[in-house]
């Protein structure tokens, strides 16, 4: 009997070790469990600048994103202590801070970004687009994925979150904008002319949309670089002054030509029907 007791003891000890081992393996596979204990609660929020900021993270979406297997700490460094000691004062500051963490992995892209107008403004501490403004935060998927904020079906909406007004209006009314809106796989989106991470303003000589470089940029789709491609403006709206002037007067001319012609033709039809009606009455 003593032998059986020893056996049972050994068996139970081994079982305990096994359970412990599986438990630690499970913990290693879900390193974010501790974070999600709080952050997976939908109502989890904080008051910042007088506004309620949600601190909720959809763990399902996060696990489906390209960063689904990363630790929370990869992007949110210095959050070991609970409650967190290293806090930010605003949502924008968080975006800036996380942008610094992106370069740990995306070093090449980050270098391009730092040289771009967006990156320069970030360095100056001015309001600008950080990585997460274009790519999203916990939901980042590959560009080819239709849900990606930088997929060609969504990129216009993403850029025009900030670049609204004349820039957005003119693109939406352009042939490129119309074609992309209806699902064209060829027509130019914002990034086809402006590039993605290396975006520079039109006044910078190196910019793809500077006057000197516009012909070459157009030629990347339209065969040959014609100097005339730069004689005019891409982002014009129908205004009697400014770059949209020729188009404005073309629109006015054809609008009034159409109204006048069609009104006269309809009057002619009505008179014709009136005469036929009268003549029919006589017979």
């Amino acid at each position: 009997m003593a032998f059986r007791k020893i056996l049972l003891f050994v068996f139970l000890s081994l079982a305990l070790v096994l359970i412990g081992a599986t438990a630690s393996v499970a913990e290693a596979a879900e390193p974010n469990d501790q974070c999600l204990q709080c952050h997976s609660n939908k109502g989890f929020s904080i008051e910042k600048e007088g506004k309620t900021v949600s601190l909720y993270v959809d763990s399902n979406e996060l696990s489906q994103s390209v960063h689904g297997t990363n630790d929370c700490q990869t992007c949110h460094a210095g959050m070991e202590d609970i409650p967190h000691k290293e806090t930010v004062s605003s949502v924008r500051e968080l975006a800036a801070k996380v942008t610094e963490r992106c370069q740990v992995c995306h070093a090449d892209v980050n270098k391009e970004y730092k040289d771009s107008t967006h990156g320069k403004l970030a360095a100056e501490g001015q309001e600008t687009a950080y990585c997460s403004d274009c790519h999203g935060a916990h939901t980042i998927v590959k560009t080819e994925n239709e849900n990606s904020l930088v997929n060609r079906t969504n990129i216009t909406e993403t850029c025009t979150k900030c670049h609204s007004g004349e820039i957005a209006e003119s693109y939406v009314e352009s042939f490129h904008g119309k074609a992309v809106n209806l699902g064209s796989t060829k027509a130019a989106t914002c990034v086809d002319c402006h590039t993605d991470h290396m975006i520079l303003g039109p006044t910078e000589p190196k910019s793809t949309v500077s006057k000197a470089n516009v012909p070459e940029t157009c030629a990347s789709c339209h065969n040959t670089a014609q100097p005339n491609f730069a004689v005019g403006s891409e982002h014009w709206t129908f205004e009697p002054d400014g770059p949209g002037k020729p188009m404005y007067y073309t629109l006015k001319f054809f609008t009034w030509l159409t109204i006048a012609t069609i009104v006269l033709l309809i009057v002619h039809i009505e008179l014709d029907l009136f005469r036929k009606y009268k003549n029919a009455g006589k017979k």
């Binding site: 042939f175 030629a219 339209h222 491609f229 403006s233 073309t250 629109l251 054809f254």
Partner: peptide, 23 residues
């Protein structure tokens, strides 16, 4: 457009698009 741009400035080609749509 690249052939048209050998003869006409960009703003003229843009105007013809408006003419195309309205005519």
């Amino acid at each position: 457009p690249d052939i048209a741009a050998q003869f006409f400035p960009r703003w003229f080609i843009d105007s013809t698009r408006i003419a195309h749509s309205d005519e």
